[in-house]
Amino acid sequence: MKVSKSFEVFAKEAPEVQAAWMETVQKLDAASKLDKKTEELAYIAVMAAVRLESGIPFHVKMAKSNGATRDEIISAILVGLPAVGNIVTTSLPAAIEAYDED
């Protein structure tokens, strides 16, 4: 799966830091008690809430590959509405486009 342009640049321009980051990410993933689909849906919700839209397509595809439905993706994004407001809706177009690809 294709990562965001910003993550590609991170890997190219700071490979040692990126490798350390990925090692940490993998350790955190291994420590999670959530199943992969739930973990990806939760991650999508957080990304939408903090406006990290560049990573949304990658994680939508990960969630989809782990069995998430289109409606679950949309719900994951919108779950943050009460806490952070309608800013989460800015992630919807990228999420839907990524889900509908392929």
Rank of each mutant, 00 (worst) to 15 (best):
D100R: 12
V84C: 08
S91K: 11
P57Q: 01
T89Q: 13
K5C: 02
A68R: 00
G55R: 06
A48E: 04
I73T: 00
Y43F: 14
A95T: 06
R70I: 02
K12Q: 14
E16G: 03
M1E: 06
E13C: 09
K64P: 01
G85A: 12
M47N: 06
I73G: 00
T89G: 09
F7Q: 07
A63I: 00
V79N: 05
D102T: 11
S65L: 08
I74D: 00
G67E: 02
E39P: 04
A63F: 02
A49H: 04
R70M: 02
V25D: 12
V46C: 09
M22L: 15
A49S: 13
Q18S: 11
V25P: 01
M22Q: 14
D71I: 01
V9P: 01
S6F: 02
V46E: 07
V84P: 06
I77A: 01
S6R: 10
I74N: 01
E8M: 09
H59I: 02
M62Q: 11
E39A: 15
T38D: 05
A14S: 12
M47R: 03
V50G: 08
I44L: 12
T90R: 14
D100T: 12
T90E: 15
I96W: 12
V88S: 05
E13Q: 14
F10E: 06
T69I: 02
V3P: 03
K2V: 09
T89H: 11
G67R: 02
T24M: 14
L92N: 14
L81H: 04
G85S: 08
V3A: 09
I87V: 15
D102H: 14
S75G: 09
A19R: 13
F10S: 03
P15I: 00
D35F: 06
K37M: 04
A31W: 11
I87E: 12
V84D: 08
L81P: 03
V9S: 04
A48P: 02
I56Y: 05
D71Q: 10
P15F: 04
S6W: 01
T89A: 15
L34F: 10
L28G: 13
I73R: 00
I73M: 00
K27S: 10
D29S: 14
D29H: 11
D100E: 15
T69W: 03
A45N: 11
E53I: 11
I77W: 02
Q26G: 07
L92D: 14
E8R: 10
K64Q: 05
P82C: 09
A76M: 00
K36R: 13
L28M: 15
A31T: 05
I96A: 15
A68C: 02
T24H: 11
W21L: 10
V9G: 04
R70G: 01
L41Y: 05
M1W: 03
A14L: 10
A20F: 06
N66Y: 08
L81S: 05
E23K: 13
K33Y: 06
E16V: 06
S4L: 05
I87F: 14
L92V: 15
P57S: 06
